[in-house]
Nucleic acid binder design. Structure first.
Length: 585
RNA sequence: GGUCCCGUGGUGUAGCCUGGCCAAACACGCGGCCCUGUCAAGGCCGAGAACGCCGGUUCGAAUCCGGUCGGGACCGCCA
């Protein structure tokens, strides 16, 4: 028998009592009692206690005396019920143990940089430098298994819905819009570069022209943008595109898929359909496009109430075209000054001007009684409540209030941790303002507008709704997509509204537009992020926990030492000359 | 590009605000010895850090200041 087919340490149970087994694994713990030595032998499936008894097997006992943590060993013995009273209910294998008759040290181990079995998390830096050991920690092994399982459930589900998985290239072409590309120099084409895909967006639409009808791919995507706790430079999407579909088809498919995932992995039955929330309403009431609805705090607009106010901070913001927003904190009158100051720090940390509160923070005296009453009414504040106030440019005020809302909920333990609050952000809007106040597309230029809204596009372009949607859960954006334009006249109209010159359009989207002249079906899609789904199911708030070999915030791989410099010959072959960044003087 | 937090033996922390009692404490781990029912085993003994790095202030710095490197959270960014 090879170790490959040997029983798994962690899978043995009481029913296996009496079996002669040969086990392979790592020494998780060792308890040397003199004539009796216990070790917990760990493999991917768990751990089981092995007993070395000096009286019964002197040679294996002698070898066991030299065992240390993380030694790789082979043990032969017999599974037995533990003596009554010595069972360990905390172990899945706690009713039984292996009475060892033979022990071989397959490989010894140096003392590891951190203890594999220590419940304390080692420093992030150390974990990443020794990621192969970090992944040996049972918590991380479980995450790897979970991710694998999620992938399998997804593939089974998509296959069952008659989707086919198509692989698209990793070496592809730079798309001039969107995020920064990761680029790969071409040896055969001096001065030309491949780009890694930010998403297989154009290719999946082309596959619809190909007649694939139902496409999916568990697709790696690359974006050279700054990292966050839920963002890595390379990540994985469940990329989906389907023909002849409407929004309901997409929603139904995704709701069924998430229901299956949550049911199979967590045993949780989600309520469908998921509620839908207009993006503008979400930004107003929750200060974000990915609201956490596990608590009931809501933001109120106070512009109307304070229209005539003389209070300087509000007057200034409103006159500058900004907004004033308020958040009721139930029972918040007892909030310590220190907490309020920390919320101000949150506001300022997000680039906001600050935060005021009522009653208190010495703004009361600048507000009329009617204004205070109005604020109470608009926010729903009652006796004993506190109202937090932010005055700023609209976008900034929303961001700041959104952060404060979530922070208040967290600190005051208002979040119902056992809930799964899925929702669709839908509808969204076709256009938004760019930095220069010019019209630009909110999603991408193929997003299908609401037909009926196009009648007023000239007068109120920002009110034109789009068939686009994000799926959100507990404050995380789990994915987004849209129905695409397939009518050439509509497409032309949108390009025209965006003021995009013909040659720009042709350069960026020529392939797709040409393909669309050969019989394009109506189509649409969505791309849920698999990393974030696994984060949710795995109960972690950090994407690094669900990626086997992640990058640091500065995009380094501390284990491999990537990125690294290249030698001159490699650079020459690629026709690359490195120009070091100018040192600031 | 910006704001904030962190960096002390192998690991996790304390000390830092209020400089000297700190060549630095505790736990885990590590080395040795003892122990036949332990399971975060236990008992005894022992080794191990001049406090990321550079510079400054000071009679004196892990502690204060500046810079720098590294890790983390967030804003901008991520159509």
């Amino acid at each position: 028998m090879s170790g490959y087919s040997a029983p798994h340490c962690g899978s043995l149970r009481a029913k296996d009592a009496g079996r002669d087994v040969e086990l392979y694994g790592w020494v998780a713990r060792r308890r040397d009692q003199g004539g009796l030595i216990f070790i917990d032998l760990r493999d991917r499936w768990g751990a089981i206690q092995v007993v070395f008894n000096q009286a019964l097997s002197p040679s294996s006992h002698a070898t066991a005396a030299d065992l240390r943590s993380e030694y790789v060993v082979r043990v032969k013995g017999v599974i037995g019920q533990r003596p009554s009273g010595s069972e360990n209910p905390r172990m899945a294998t706690g009713e039984i143990e292996v009475a060892a008759s033979e022990l071989e040290v397959v490989n010894s181990s140096e003392t590891t940089p951190f203890q594999i079995e220590d419940p304390d998390e080692p420093d992030e830096k150390t974990r990443l430098e020794y990621r192969y050991l970090d992944l040996r920690r049972p918590r991380m092994t479980r995450m790897l298994e979970l991710r694998s399982r999620v992938n399998k459930i997804i593939r089974d589900f998509m296959d069952g819905s008659e989707f086919i998985e198509v692989e698209t290239p990793i070496l592809t072409r730079s798309s001039p819009s969107g995020a920064r590309d990761f680029l790969v120099p071409s040896r055969l084409h001096p001065g030309s570069f491949y780009a890694l895909p930010q998403a297989p967006q154009m290719l999946k639409q082309l596959l619809m022209v190909s007649g694939v009808q139902r496409y999916y791919q568990i697709a790696r995507c690359f974006r050279d943008e700054n990292l966050r706790a839920d963002r890595q430079p390379e990540f994985t999407q469940l990329d989906i595109e389907m023909s002849f579909c409407d929004e309901e088809d997409v929603f139904g498919l995704i709701e069924a898929l998430f229901s299956k995932l949550w049911h199979d992995v967590l045993g949780v039955d989600l309520t469908t359909p998921f509620p839908r929330l207009d993006i503008k309403e979400s930004l107003l009431r929750f200060g974000t496009d990915k609201p956490d609805l596990r608590h009931d705090l809501e933001i109120a607009d106070l512009g109307h109430v304070l229209a005539e106010t003389k209070a300087q901070i509000f007057r200034g913001a409103l006159d500058a075209g900004g907004v004033v927003r308020g958040l009721r904190v139930p029972g918040g009158r007892d909030m310590p000054r220190r907490d309020l100051d920390e919320l101000v720090t949150v506001a300022k940390g997000a680039g906001g001007r600050g935060m005021a509160w009522l009653p208190g923070s010495s703004i009361d005296k600048f507000l009329t009684e009617a204004e205070i009453a109005g604020i109470k009414q608009a926010t729903g504040a009652e006796e004993g409540d506190l109202v937090l106030l932010v005055a700023d440019r609209k976008r900034k005020a929303e961001t700041v209030m959104g952060l404060i809302r979530q922070e208040v909920a967290r600190r005051r333990k208002l979040i119902r941790e056992d809930e799964w609050k899925f929702l669709w952000i839908n509808p969204t809007y076709l256009f938004e303002e760019d930095d220069q106040g010019k019209l630009t597309y909110a999603h991408h230029p193929f997003t299908r507008p609401f037909e009926e809204d196009m009648s007023f596009v000239e007068e109120r372009p920002y009110d034109v709704r789009a068939h686009a949607y994000d799926i959100v859960c507990n404050g995380y954006e789990l994915g987004g997509g849209s129905l695409r334009i397939y009518d050439p006249a509509m497409q032309e109209r949108v390009f025209q509204l965006l003021g995009m010159p013909l040659e720009t359009i042709r350069a960026r989207f020529g392939t797709l537009l040409e393909a669309f002249t050969y019989g394009v079906p109506p189509h649409g899609g969505i791309a849920p992020g698999i990393d974030r789904i696994v984060m949710m199911l795995g109960g972690t708030d950090n994407i690094r926990d669900v990626v086997a070999f992640p990058k640091t915030q500065s995009m380094s791989d501390l284990m491999l030492g990537a990125p690294s410099e290249l030698d001159a010959a490699q650079l020459e072959e690629l026709h690359i000359q490195v120009v070091p960044p100018k040192k600031p003087t």
